[in-house]
Amino acid sequence: MKQGIHPEYRPLVFRDRSTGKLFLTKSTRTSDHTVEIDGQTYPVVDVDVSSDSHPFWTGKAKLIDSEGRVEAFERRYGRKG
């Protein structure tokens, strides 16, 4: 591996905006915002969706169809019972 060409790999916190849950991991990403966990200060990055709020992981999957594509499909081909 070449020296001096790779970004620094350091601890980072990802925060789910909808639930507020914090995930401490390592990343090359940087942030100006920080959060304190167990007396340590880490950079924090806010994310819209994580495993804590994603419908697949929470079991609360919803069909979001703002353009009516599902209804058009069901009218054309019918719904199987």
Rank of each mutant, 00 (worst) to 15 (best):
Y77G: 11
P43D: 13
I5K: 11
A72Y: 08
R69A: 09
Y9I: 02
K26G: 00
G68R: 07
S53Y: 09
A61R: 13
G81V: 15
P11F: 07
E8V: 03
F73S: 07
S66I: 14
P7W: 11
R15M: 12
S31H: 01
T25Q: 12
V49C: 07
T25F: 07
S50T: 15
A72Q: 09
I5P: 04
E67Q: 14
H54F: 06
R79P: 04
S27Q: 07
R29C: 05
D52A: 14
T19E: 04
L24E: 01
G39F: 08
V70L: 15
H33V: 09
R29T: 11
K62W: 06
G59T: 06
F56L: 09
H6A: 10
G20F: 09
P43M: 12
I5T: 12
V44T: 04
V45Q: 02
E74D: 07
D46V: 09
A72D: 03
R10E: 14
D46R: 00
F23C: 05
K80L: 14
K80Q: 14
L24Q: 07
T34E: 13
Y42R: 00
V45C: 00
D48S: 13
G68M: 03
I37P: 02
E67D: 14
S66T: 15
T30I: 07
R15G: 04
K62E: 14
P7R: 06
T58Y: 12
E67I: 15
D16W: 09
I37N: 01
G78K: 06
D65N: 06
F56V: 11
V70W: 10
G4F: 15
H54R: 03
A61D: 00
H6R: 14
T25Y: 02
Y9F: 14
S66M: 14
T19D: 10
T41N: 03
F23Q: 07
E8S: 08
Y9G: 00
G68Q: 10
V70R: 14
V35S: 05
V35T: 10
F73Y: 10
D38P: 01
K2T: 03
S51H: 13
G78W: 11
L24N: 03
Y77A: 13
T30C: 00
T30N: 02
Q3L: 07
E8I: 09
P11W: 04
S66D: 12
V44G: 05
R15T: 05
V49Y: 12
K2S: 14
Q3Y: 13
G68C: 10
V35M: 00
R79G: 03
R76E: 15
V70G: 00
T41Q: 07
M1A: 11
L63G: 10
R10Y: 12
S27L: 04
G78R: 06
P43Y: 06
F23L: 15
G20M: 01
T58M: 05
Y77E: 13
K62V: 08
R76N: 12
M1R: 06
V47N: 01
R15H: 04
E67L: 11
L24F: 03
H33W: 10
E67A: 15
P7L: 00
S51R: 12
K2D: 05
